[in-house]
Design a protein around this nucleic acid. Structure first.
Lengths: 341, 341
DNA sequence: CTGTTAGCGCATTCAC
DNA sequence: GTGAATGCGCTAACAG
C-alpha cells in the first residue's frame, strides 16, 4: 500500500460549505434533508460534498446527540462453535439499523473482560451484549453500567439482568419425543461434561419426555468429554452392556458422530436397528455423516438477533424486562432417526 | 434489566472538576499525569473521578486528536471456518494496543460491503482490514480510502494494495515432501472446487514437490466439493482405479475425513498401507479422526495478527509496502501419515 | 431561505 | 500551579 503520508485528511463540513459558497449550517441542513433550504442551494452543496467525497464525522455527531450508534459485543471466547452464529445474528440486526458493533474477546479472562468493558464505556457505546461460552450462569457486570446490557447464551447470575439463553430442557425433551414418535422405547443417553448446565438441563428435559411416555432411560447418562472419541468409546460400552437399546440421544453432534462410527463397526444399522440423535446441528458434522444426523438446533443466530433487538429497545427507552429467558430450539430431522429414500 | 431510565448519564470531566473544586483544565492535567499540578490537587481530582466512576469520552478525545483508536474489520463472510482465527488474531493484536475493532460482515454482498465501508469511514476508523473468504483475488476498495487498508486471506486485485494471504503453494509442496519423506511414491490428490485459487496453488506446489523427488502424481487431481461426502466417493473411485496408491494428499480436512472413512471400509490400513494428509488443520476434524489426521495449518491467527500489525505501522506513518505477501504455513504431523505408539 | 451562535467533552495553549 | 479561553466537526436554536 502506498504510504498514507497523512494523506488528504477526510473532508469536513466546513470544506463542503466553503466549496459550495454557503455557511456550514446551510450545508448541514442540505445534507440532512431538512426542508428549509432552496433547491439550487441544496444541489450545490450535494455536488460539493460529492466532489470532496465528504463523509460526516460520526463522532462529532455522537458528541452532540449523546448517543454513538455503537454497541459492544463482549464475548468470553471466540473460539467455540457457539459464538459465531450469535455474533452473526447480532451484527446483522445492528447493521440493518445503522449501528456498528465493537467486538471484544475476553478470552475467558476476567481481567481482560474488565479492561474491555472500560474501553467500551469509554467509547460510549449505547449498549452491550455479553456472550458467554456455556449456558451456565456467569457473573453479572453489575447494575452500575450506564448503558443497557443483555446477556446472551450464558445468562447473568443476577436475576435483575436480562439474559437470553437456549432452552436446553426443551431440547432434551424434543429429542426424546422425536425418538418416541419413531417408535423407540429403549433409549440411552451419552453426553459430555456433567458440570455443564447444558448437559444437566438436557437430561432433565429428556427424563420428562421419557416419563410422559411411560419410559425410562436405559442405564444412567454417560458423561465425559464433548468429543467424537468419547462418543465412539461410550457407544461401544453401551452397546455391549445394553445390547437392546434402540436409540441413543447424544449430547452433541460430535459425540453422535462417534456413536455412528461405532454403530457401523458393530454392524448396527442406523436408523433401522438404532436411531441416533445429536445436538447443536453443527452442519459440518451433521450433514456429512452417514447417515446424516438428526439434531437439535438452538437457533443461535436468532438468539443473537433477539439480543440485539432487546438492546435496541432498551436504547429507545423501552423496558425490556429482566430475568433469564429460554429461547425455543428446533428439531432438524435427518436420516439417523428416520430412513430416507 | 431495570429500565435504564436515561439513568445517571456517564460523568463528564466537568463533573469531576466541580466535585474536586478545580477547573476542568486542572482536572484534565491531573488525570492525564501532566506534571504541572500540585500533589494534593491531583489527589482530590483522582478521588473525585473515582467516586463518579469517571470514564473519559473517547469520542471527544478522538475529535481533538484526529485519530479514534478504532479500526474496521470488514469480512465478506463470518460463516466460514477461516474468518474466525483471523479475526481472533487481529482482535488480539489490536486489543493489546488499546485499539477497538468494528466488526462488519458484508455477507458476500458488494452493496452491503460498500455500505459498511461508508459507515467505517464515517466513524473515522484509523485503518481497515479486509478479510475475504477465499484466497482468490478480490476487488480492491480503491486507492481513495483516506486510511490504510490491509487485505487478509483474499488478496486485493490491485498490486498497489498490501495483501497477506497463506502460501498455498508451499502448503502443497510441504504436504508432498512429508509424504515422500515417509517413503511414499504413489501419491494421488483429491481436492475440492477447481475454480478456487487455493486448490490450484496447492496442486502447483504439490507438483513441484513431486518433481523434485522424481515422481509424478498418480492420475489427475480429482475435483469436486470440499466435503466429506466427496472425500468418501473420490477415495472409492481412486482406490479402485489405482489400487497401488500408497498416499493421498487431500485438499481439505473434510475431504480427508471422507477418505479415511472409505479406506477403513475397504480394509486399507492407515497409515501402514495408505498415508493420508489433510489441509487446514481444523482440529474438530483432524484430532477426532481415526487415526488422527496429519494436516497443513495456515497459521491464520498469526495472519490476522500480522495484518493488525501492518495496520498499526501504517497508522504510525510507516510505509508498509505493497503487493501480495504469502505467509508461511506449517505441517502438523499426526497418526495418518506416521504410525503412532 | 440563510447565516450566526452556542455548545457536546475534552486537551491544550497562554495568561495569571 | 491554576484557570479562562480556543477549537476538534457537527447540529439545533435562533436571528436576519
Amino acid at each position: 500500500m502506498a504510504p498514507k503520508e497523512n494523506g488528504p485528511r477526510a473532508a469536513t463540513l466546513t470544506d463542503v460549505a466553503r466549496r459550495a459558497g454557503v455557511s456550514i449550517a446551510t450545508a448541514s441542513k442540505a445534507l440532512n434533508n431538512r426542508d428549509d433550504v432552496a433547491f439550487t442551494t441544496r444541489q450545490r452543496v450535494l455536488q460539493a460534498a460529492e466532489a470532496l467525497s465528504f463523509t460526516p464525522n460520526a463522532m462529532a455527531k455522537g458528541l452532540l446527540a449523546g448517543r454513538t450508534g455503537t454497541v459492544g459485543l463482549l464475548t468470553s471466547d471466540l473460539e467455540g462453535r457457539f459464538m459465531i452464529p450469535i455474533l452473526m445474528g447480532a451484527e446483522d440486526a445492528f447493521g440493518a439499523g445503522q449501528v456498528n458493533v465493537f467486538l471484544c474477546d475476553a478470552r475467558g479472562d476476567a481481567i481482560r473482560e474488565k479492561h474491555h468493558l472500560r474501553a467500551l464505556l469509554s467509547r460510549r457505546v449505547d449498549g452491550i451484549i455479553v456472550v458467554g461460552r456455556q449456558t451456565d450462569p456467569r457473573p453479572s457486570l453489575g447494575q452500575e453500567i450506564p448503558v443497557p446490557v443483555v446477556y446472551a447464551y450464558a445468562p447473568s447470575d443476577d436475576p435483575s439482568d436480562l439474559s437470553l439463553t437456549p432452552d436446553n430442557y426443551s431440547g432434551g425433551r424434543l429429542a426424546i419425543e422425536h425418538l418416541v414418535a419413531c417408535g423407540r422405547t429403549r433409549i440411552a443417553h451419552i453426553t459430555g461434561d456433567p458440570t455443564y448446565a447444558a448437559a444437566q438441563d438436557r437430561i432433565a428435559g429428556a427424563r420428562s419426555g421419557l416419563q410422559a411416555a411411560g419410559l425410562e432411560l436405559v442405564g444412567e447418562p454417560m458423561f465425559s468429554e464433548w468429543t467424537e472419541h468419547w462418543g465412539r468409546d461410550a457407544a461401544a460400552i453401551l452397546l455391549q452392556r445394553h445390547p437392546d437399546v434402540d436409540a441413543i440421544f447424544c449430547g452433541s453432534d460430535q459425540i453422535a458422530r462417534g456413536v455412528l462410527d461405532t454403530a457401523r463397526e458393530l454392524g448396527r444399522k442406523v436408523p433401522a436397528d438404532l436411531a441416533v440423535i445429536g445436538y447443536d446441528n453443527w452442519e459440518v458434522l451433521s450433514t456429512n455423516s452417514r447417515p446424516e444426523l438428526t439434531s437439535i438446533d438452538a437457533n443461535l443466530q436468532q438468539l443473537g438477533r433477539q439480543a440485539a433487538q432487546r438492546v435496541f429497545d432498551a436504547i429507545d427507552g423501552v423496558d425490556i424486562g429482566e430475568g433469564t429467558h429460554h429461547l425455543p430450539v428446533r428439531l432438524v430431522i435427518r436420516g439417523s432417526t428416520i430412513p430416507r429414500r
